[in-house]
């Protein structure tokens, strides 16, 4: 916080939606998820997405561009909980020690 006292919004309101993004939680991680695209249903046919749906930290990125799909993690925020790996129906995600 670098604002002067008269720059702080009234009543301690936080006026920038989702500014928690400035706080990176990736450092909490002891294990990182690693994705193998071979059997992944999102890569194959654009379905499933259970890892994206269940991730509590919005750290799975399912990208679709010009009819081709890619998959990535946002390691700035992923806390390494392993929910994505546990819920993947095709065992496409493994947790590896940091």
């Amino acid at each position: 916080m670098s604002e002067k006292f008269d720059e702080i919004p009234m009543a301690g309101n936080i006026i920038e939606p989702g500014n928690a993004m400035k706080y990176k939680t990736g450092g909490w991680r002891a294990q990182r998820p690693v994705h193998n695209p071979e059997n992944c249903l999102w890569i194959k046919n654009g379905t499933c997405g259970r890892c994206w749906i269940f991730c509590p930290d919005m750290s799975v990125r399912l990208v679709e561009k010009d009819n081709s799909r890619s998959y990535e993690y946002d390691y700035d925020y992923c806390k390494g909980c392993g929910i994505c790996a546990n819920e993947c129906p095709t065992d496409s995600i493994t947790m590896e020690s940091e």
Binding site: G18, Y23, D57
Partner: peptide, 20 residues
């Protein structure tokens, strides 16, 4: 899924709930 990916999320990353 297709509609979920399009819809604006209401919570961002960077929150400090425990892992998992």
């Amino acid at each position: 899924l297709k509609d979920m990916l399009q819809k604006d999320q209401i919570l961002s990353a960077g929150h400090r709930m425990c892992a998992g």
